[in-house]
Amino acid sequence: MIIASVRVNQTLTVSEFSLTPAGGTAALKAILLTSATDPNKMLSSNVVALIPDAPLAAKTTYTAKLVGTNNGQPINKTWSFTTQ
């Protein structure tokens, strides 16, 4: 699960949240959870979660991309991480 958040009392809206393996061109199939779509109502409006449909591969670098708004201001963030 990849989680992104902004400060408490701010609202994070998402137009794109994707996860792509290094060297890949297609994003992994995943479920996006927001405060509006979380069936357990655990997420607040400042948090989003991306849950891949399958386990991530070991020792693999992935790139996450988040596009949306934080309190109405545009955000476009990209970061990478490597699994153990």
Rank of each mutant, 00 (worst) to 15 (best):
50 L>E: 09
66 L>I: 08
11 T>E: 12
74 P>F: 08
23 G>R: 09
60 T>L: 01
39 P>L: 02
48 V>T: 13
8 V>D: 13
15 S>L: 03
4 A>E: 11
58 A>M: 10
69 T>R: 15
79 W>A: 06
7 R>N: 13
56 L>S: 10
54 A>E: 13
44 S>R: 13
47 V>S: 07
42 M>K: 15
66 L>T: 07
16 E>K: 15
8 V>I: 10
39 P>R: 05
2 I>A: 00
56 L>W: 08
16 E>V: 12
58 A>C: 00
2 I>N: 05
1 M>D: 15
44 S>I: 06
57 A>Y: 03
45 S>L: 05
32 L>H: 03
26 A>K: 13
48 V>K: 07
81 F>Y: 10
35 S>D: 14
77 K>L: 14
27 A>I: 08
82 T>I: 04
15 S>E: 11
57 A>R: 06
17 F>S: 05
24 G>R: 06
33 L>A: 12
30 A>K: 06
4 A>S: 07
25 T>A: 07
33 L>W: 10
17 F>Q: 02
15 S>P: 01
68 G>R: 13
74 P>M: 10
57 A>M: 11
49 A>S: 12
56 L>K: 07
62 Y>R: 05
16 E>C: 01
78 T>K: 09
53 D>S: 15
28 L>D: 02
23 G>T: 08
63 T>D: 01
33 L>K: 14
74 P>T: 11
1 M>E: 15
1 M>Y: 05
2 I>R: 07
3 I>S: 11
64 A>L: 11
14 V>H: 10
62 Y>F: 00
4 A>W: 01
47 V>L: 10
8 V>G: 01
30 A>V: 05
28 L>T: 04
6 V>T: 15
70 N>G: 12
40 N>S: 11
84 Q>C: 00
37 T>Q: 10
24 G>S: 08
49 A>D: 01
7 R>T: 11
84 Q>W: 03
83 T>V: 06
50 L>D: 03
84 Q>A: 13
14 V>D: 06
65 K>I: 13
38 D>T: 00
38 D>G: 00
11 T>C: 00
66 L>A: 09
44 S>Y: 04
8 V>Q: 09
28 L>Y: 01
79 W>G: 05
40 N>D: 08
41 K>W: 05
36 A>R: 04
83 T>M: 05
19 L>A: 00
13 T>Y: 11
29 K>H: 06
56 L>A: 05
82 T>P: 00
13 T>C: 07
41 K>T: 12
45 S>M: 01
79 W>M: 02
76 N>P: 02
71 N>Y: 03
78 T>R: 03
32 L>R: 09
56 L>D: 01
12 L>M: 01
18 S>I: 02
29 K>Q: 15
16 E>Q: 14
19 L>D: 08
41 K>E: 04
57 A>K: 15
71 N>F: 07
77 K>T: 12
69 T>I: 09
